[in-house]
Simulated scan of single mutants.
Amino acid sequence: MGRGFLLMLLLIALPATAQIYKYTDAAGNTAYSNQPPDGVKAEPVELPPLNSVERQAPPAPPAETTSREQSRSAYEVLELTNLPTTEALRANNGTFTVNVLIKPRLQGPHLFRLLLDDQPYGQPSNVPILQLVNIDRGTHSLAVQVIEGENVVQQSPIVTFTVQRVHKP
C-alpha cells in the first residue's frame, strides 16, 4: 500500500512541476509552450508562486462561555457548507448558493438569516439553501443565524472566503 500511495502522490505532483518555455517562432513572435520546440532555442521561464488563500480561524471563546452556550443551544449542529475556504470561490457574476447544515431540523417559528460581513443579508427564510447575488470580489465573512422574530436563537461559526470574479474585456 505504501508504494501505491507514493505513486499516486507523484502523479498528483507532476503537473505542479511542469516547466514553461519561451521562444521566438518563425514569424518573429514570442511564444510560450510546456515543451521546448525542436530546432528552436527555448528559454525556461521562472514563474512566481501561485496565490493562495489561508483560512483564518476565529479566536476560541473561553471554555466556560462555550459550555454555557452549548447548554442553551437549541441546535446541536449549525454551520454553513458549500463554501471553499482554501481557495477562491469563482463566481463571475457574484451569484452563488450556500447550504445550512442543521441538526435537529429547524423548529416551528425559527428562520435562517445570513450575515454577510457582519450585516444581515437578504430576507429570513426557512429553507436551508440560501442564495447570494452580485457579491463583490474580495474576502468576505459569512455566518447564518437562527432567529425567532428579532431575537437571535443561535449563530453558526463565521466562515471567511474569497470571491473571484473574472472580468471579460
Rank of each mutant, 00 (worst) to 15 (best):
P44Y: 03
A88G: 07
S73D: 09
P128F: 01
E79K: 15
L78C: 05
H140Q: 02
G138T: 01
T30Y: 09
N99Y: 07
I20N: 06
E64Y: 12
Q119C: 08
T81W: 07
A16F: 08
N93Q: 15
P49T: 09
N93E: 15
D118L: 12
V133M: 15
Q131E: 13
I129Q: 13
V100E: 01
G28E: 05
T85F: 01
I102V: 11
L101A: 15
S52F: 15
V77R: 14
A88T: 07
S141M: 05
P120R: 06
L115Y: 14
Q119T: 14
E148M: 09
L132I: 02
E76K: 15
E69Y: 11
V146I: 06
R105Q: 11
P62D: 05
N93A: 15
A91Q: 03
Y75Q: 02
Q155P: 01
S33K: 06
T160W: 13
G4V: 11
Q155F: 05
P58T: 05
N99D: 07
L111D: 12
L78M: 04
D38Q: 11
Y23K: 04
L130P: 01
F5M: 13
L83D: 00
G108R: 09
A143N: 04
L114F: 10
N151R: 14
A42N: 04
V98S: 03
I129R: 13
F112L: 01
V40L: 07
L14A: 09
T95S: 14
E79F: 10
V163R: 04
A74Q: 12
G108N: 09
V100C: 02
I147Q: 03
E54S: 15
V77P: 04
T97R: 11
L111M: 14
N82L: 07
L114W: 05
M1W: 14
P48L: 07
R3W: 13
D25T: 00
L7Y: 11
T24W: 06
L132N: 01
E150I: 13
A18V: 09
P109L: 12
A18Q: 11
T81L: 05
I129F: 13
E64D: 12
Q70W: 14
V127S: 10
R90I: 09
I135F: 03
P48S: 06
S52D: 13
I12M: 04
L142I: 03
G94W: 03
T17N: 10
V77D: 09
N92F: 02
P109Y: 12
Y75M: 02
P61N: 06
Q131K: 09
F161V: 01
G2Y: 09
Q145I: 04
N51F: 09
K103Y: 07
P49E: 10
P15T: 00
P128T: 02
P15C: 00
E87S: 14
A143G: 06
F96S: 02
T160K: 15
V166A: 12
P15E: 02
A63N: 10
E76S: 08
V127H: 10
N51Q: 12
L6E: 05
V40K: 10
I102L: 14
